[in-house]
Design a protein around this nucleic acid. Sequence first.
DNA 1: ATTAATGTTCAGAA
DNA 2: TTTCTGAACATTAA
Length: 282
Amino acid sequence: MPELPEVETMCRGIAPCLGTTIQAIYRPRCRLKPIQIRPLIGTLRKKLYGAQIIAIERVGKRAVLCTNQDTFLVFEPRMTGLLLLSDPPDTEHLRLHIKLTSGGRQRGIQNLLFWDRRGLGTVQLLTESTYATLCHGGKLGPDALQMTPALFFQQMGKSRRAIKVALLDQKLVAGIGNLYAAEILLLAGIHPEQTCLQLTDRDWQNISRATRRVLRQAIRYEGSTLGDGTYRNALNKKGRYQNHHRVYGREGETCRHCRVGRVKRIVQSQRATFYCPTCQPA
DNA sequence: ATTAATGTTCAGAA
DNA sequence: TTTCTGAACATTAA
């Protein structure tokens, strides 16, 4: 579930790691299937020992620790991954524990934890060139917060797919997931099954504006913690944007935007889509 | 006790 | 080339 706003919140939350040095890396033992960590943990330790965290970046739905050795530790939370400074929801699903020090000695110990209930998340150490390939090699589209109407049209204007499905394609635009795609299309007033090909210039303008508005607002509320309560910020606190969802997860309820329409739920690419028939006519 | 559903990404197929 | 399907995994609800 972590999409752009949740990952952005994680990155801001782990800012205390900035300037610290990696002292140790533990992989807590648990009976669950281990998550994918590349390279192997021993190599990871060798390459990261003594490295200093000089920047923290978000790339689409990934959080990245940049080191002074020109390496990049990329966390991909996927469904249920979390980056925490302390206080994990449980120890059973702790996947990686990084111990950081800020002073020359033991002063200022900082812990960085990767917790993942389902275990679909990954951690990868990349070199400068492979990291550049990830960001600019066509694997990921432009960041959702950088999109303009013209960029949207360039990326998906000629596609025959439904707009909702296209918004989820990270190669076209990076950072939007199932939840925010629904909220964006509601504010843009566009039916999720409309084909990209059918959309007008005006539609792309509305999508672009709605994207910025929804994502920025969600970041302000530190993301969405859904019913299962998995998503938390770096201090294990819930997000608050779920209280402001207009359509997502609200099938049968009145639309919070127009207060007239009844929210519908359909399935697209085997995922739930929520929309308001009044705000988003076919 | 099975089965479905959850939502992200990737491999492989249509 | 573009688009679609199923698998990866753990947990909960039906």
